[in-house]
Design a protein around this nucleic acid. Structure first.
Length: 587
RNA sequence: CGGGGUGUAGCUUAGCCUGGUAGAGCGCCUGGUUUGGGACCAGGAGGUCGAAGGUUCGAAUCCUUUCACCCCGACCA
């Protein structure tokens, strides 16, 4: 049982100007965190308590799933990363650590880095010693501060440069066992997020730089999220927009026959899809081919989509390049002989075709059949361009961003899109990290053959989950903590501290609540009642017990749940049993 | 990295255009009156106006440089 007057809970009446979204404002106003720098936060005592609660729930569910907690270093020798498969892609987000002291050096190549994630550490750590098939079927996890040089930290703990993460890693002997482990952890994740009181959905996700066979994200629907989730409730289909597909292009679609010879026509001043869609040309965007150039691992390539579609850059990952960026205007001109706005992929019109490592066509352009595209000449376009006959496509694939209303790939019903916060992400990695002989993780199977362990990795943003709970559980008065993570579960608001009868009753009921398993905060401050009620609401304690002189005179105390409006008056004689009953119902 | 914006007391901010003793509200401290949803009165503490340089008799205010932070975009495991 803690007494407010002995604690440090600096609540704020006014919102600091730095906070934009409700959960960030409440983190600050309720005295949970304070900013130290951009994307760098300190947890104050109350915030530390919630963090600990979220962490504990996570550990409980991981343990229940059979995983083992360990702890790896945050400062990591850079060789570990250099030996791994993604040093080039990942180094930009890693903070470097120089040697220390007066003779500190800051070499071009980092000596140490601050760990942004730990595949590169655990693979040699466990893989180097786990040498028998008997050592497989193990899952490890840790809860640790992670460091990532986010280009733009945002919204308090939502996207921070230093944050608390639970990261887990599994090693299995076979692909089937690895899939079973993956599904087992996915269930643990669902239990964890449910216990946090969150509404969430799990969606198919892009594997990104992490790589691997497949992946799911755990998403908390919220307008302030950074991701778009594509879903259909009836069919249960749900995927990150980076990964989502639709049934827009029928599987049995027959390619249109050519309708006539290609015709070049003048389009003075036309550099955009919209311009071409207007008078006097009137060519709808969905009848135009849009040609975009990218650079993948220093090689130029082109992607052709419909004029009305957007390229989903995450999907370009399937092309096999490890680093992709849009091409510059100069690079485009050198290859195509034209500038953006006049580009096209028609055979024979590209000035330096050999400079293009490939031309990739989105499946949906087949819906156009015969359409219009740039002539790779200023102010000229081509019509009657037939997909099969005329376009110089090396390979078709799914490269476009799905839009709301398109048919669900499972049910054909319209897809919906919802903003969401990514709080967890799991990957079935396969053997990407384990197959390397020197660095990786191999074991010897029953038949004496050397095999690469089949790995998985599993992340939960603990501090981000904390803020997501606030984002989803708050009202105009403050936070509404779920019982499971609340910093205190019961607050006893003593309106007349110093009145012996009130203090004695508070102590008695507080002890009873603790005996029933609840954590208790007694507000014994010399403040007016209004201040205490406002503060109790702001910091979001689930159950409030009010003891005041007026009530005592009538022989009663008040009980109020933070997430309900009604106030329950309870006779002092019954108070203990009613309180304990309420606590038992929650635990 | 591109675009926009802000730095004045613990928090919210006025003053800046048009240079002339740095102001208010909240919070804090003392005393008093209050006491069931962020009380009132009186008194008080707290600021090198983000930093450096310049112009000027004089700079929070004008100029230059720089740093930090916020928002949008790009990026994002």
């Amino acid at each position: 049982m803690d007494y407010w007057s002995k604690l440090y809970i600096p609540t704020l009446k006014e919102t600091p100007a730095e906070a934009e979204i409700d959960s960030h404002k409440l983190l600050l106003r309720a005295g949970l965190v304070r900013k130290i720098g951009s994307g760098i936060y300190a947890f104050l005592p109350l915030g530390a308590k919630v963090l600990e609660n979220v962490k504990r729930l996570c550990c409980e569910e991981m343990n229940r799933a059979g995983a083992m907690e360990l702890l790896m270093p945050a400062v990591v020798p850079a060789e570990y990363w250099k030996a791994g498969p993604r040093w080039n892609a990942a180094r930009e987000i890693m903070y470097q650590v120089a040697s220390a002291g007066e003779k500190a050096e800051f070499p071009e190549e980092p000596t140490f880095v601050l760990g942004p994630t730990h595949e590169e550490i655990i693979t040699p750590l466990i893989g180097g010693e786990a040498t028998s098939y008997r050592d497989m079927g193990k899952t490890f996890y840790q809860v640790q501060t992670k460091f990532r040089n986010e280009i733009r930290p945002r919204y308090g703990l939502m996207r921070a440069r230093e944050f608390i993460m639970k990261d887990g890693y599994s090693f299995d002997a076979t692909d089937e066992e690895a899939t079973a482990t993956y599904q087992n952890i996915a269930k643990a994740y669902e239990r964890f997020f449910a216990r946090c009181g969150l509404k969430f959905i799990s969606v198919e996700a892009d594997t990104g730089v992490m790589g691997g066979a497949f992946s799911h994200e755990f998403m908390v629907p919220a307008e302030v999220g950074d991701d778009d989730v594509v879903y259909n409730i009836e069919s249960g289909y749900a995927a990150n927009v980076e990964k989502a597909t639709s049934a827009l292009v029928p599987a049995d679609l027959e390619d249109a026959a050519a309708v006539g010879e290609i015709e070049k026509f003048e389009t003075p001043g036309v550099k955009t899809i919209e311009k071409l869609a207007q008078e006097p040309f009137n060519i709808p965007a969905d009848q135009q081919y849009k040609t975009l150039l990218f650079v993948g691992d220093d090689k130029l390539f082109a992607v052709v989509v419909r004029g009305c579609d957007q390229v989903e850059e995450a999907k370009l990952g399937s092309l096999g390049y490890s680093l992709i960026r849009p091409a510059t205007v100069d690079e485009i001109f050198e290859a195509m002989g034209a500038y953006p706005g006049s580009l096209g992929a028609v055979k024979g019109t590209i000035k330096n075709r050999e400079k293009l490592d490939g031309i990739f066509g989105d499946n949906a352009i087949r819906l156009i059949g015969n359409g219009v595209t740039g002539a790779n000449e200023k102010a000229m376009h081509l019509k009657n361009v037939n997909v099969v006959r005329d376009l110089d496509i090396d390979r078709f694939g799914d490269f476009r961003k799905v839009q709301a209303g398109e048919p669900c790939p499972v049910s054909g019903k319209p897809l919906e899109i919802q903003r969401a916060i990514e709080v967890g992400h799991i990957f079935k990695l396969g053997t990407k990290y384990s197959e390397n002989e020197e660095y990786g993780a191999q074991y010897v199977d029953k038949d004496g053959n050397r095999q690469a362990a089949v790995m998985g990795c599993y992340g939960i943003g603990i501090s981000r989950t904390l803020q997501s709970i606030i984002e989803q559980k708050h009202d105009g008065n403050g936070i509404v903590w779920p019982w499971s993570v609340a910093p205190y579960q019961v607050i006893i608001t003593v309106l007349d501290p110093g009145m012996e009868e009130a203090d004695t009753l508070a102590l008695k009921l507080g002890e009873a609540a603790e005996a029933a398993g609840a954590s208790v905060l007694v507000d014994d401050r010399e403040e007016r009642p209004g201040v205490k009620f406002k503060d109790a609401d702001l910091i979001g304690i689930p159950l409030r017990l009010t003891i005041g002189g007026r009530g005592l005179k009538n022989g009663e105390v008040e009980m109020k749940w933070r997430d309900r409006d009604e106030v329950q008056k309870v006779a002092i004689a019954d108070a203990e049993s009613v309180l304990v009953e309420g606590i038992k119902a929650k635990s």
